[in-house]
Amino acid sequence: MTYKKQKALVGYLFMAPYGIAFLCFLVLPLVVAGALSVMQFDLTSKETTHFVGTQNFVEVYKDTYFWQALLATSRYVIWMVPALVITSLGIALGLNAMSRGRNMVRALIFLPGMFTIAVTAIIWQWFYNLEFGFFNYVIKTFLHGQPVPWLSEKSLAMPSIVVMALWWSAGGASIIILTSLQQIPKMYFEAASLDGANIWQLFKNITFPLLKPVLFFVILTSTIGAFQMFPQASLLTNGGPELSTRGVVQYIYETAFNNYRLGYAASISWILAAITMLFGMFQFLMIRKGVRNVS
């Protein structure tokens, strides 16, 4: 055996553990998902399993609950993404302008991201509670207003979920933006300041253009993430009121594990995946570009 062949053999041995895991739990599931989506597959009556072609997809198209769920998910995306970008950009700019105690503040803002979503939801459910929640306590005692039904009023439920999600994830996003803020050479600002530019001009002409790639990255990843919204709503409102916050992933979960219709759930998964992957393609191209830059 030549040295080259030997090296390749060892190389494949080194690749094997990950390669097998990759095949079994990334490639194979995709194949299974594809197969399930064209099958009638009900866990509770397996003897009825058979090939149905595109019938599931036709049913999804006609399913008002699917469209309702997609609307809920879209509402979450539309609220969440801009809110996240603006909040985290603001925090990053603030952190960047700080001289002392920056690391401390940064750590504190990031801390909520360390909590599991289950705990996060418990804390916020308690805050939003109509009778004895913290927010309504403040409204009743200091503002002398009527208690606000944060989670049971259709127009308020989704924004309430978004506020919780912001608390949970703004820290992470702002760290990403901050990192790229810190990479902007100081001399750019110094030169512009000498020319008499004010803060707004500095931001508009230097900071923002240089931040564009990272903002784009944050928008993309948070959009893809927001399309996966599930425990945020299911733990806080359980999809209510009137199913207005039940997102697609929760609908998939319920279809698969409450109604036991794995085939139909797989079909919905594919449709959501197709929508998400439109955004994912951009991300992939960006990462590819990054890979090429490094190598």
Partner: peptide, 10 residues
């Protein structure tokens, strides 16, 4: 409908 399919295939 699915049960009908099942009976047929049976």
């Amino acid at each position: 409908e699915t049960q009908k399919d099942a009976k047929l295939s049976e």
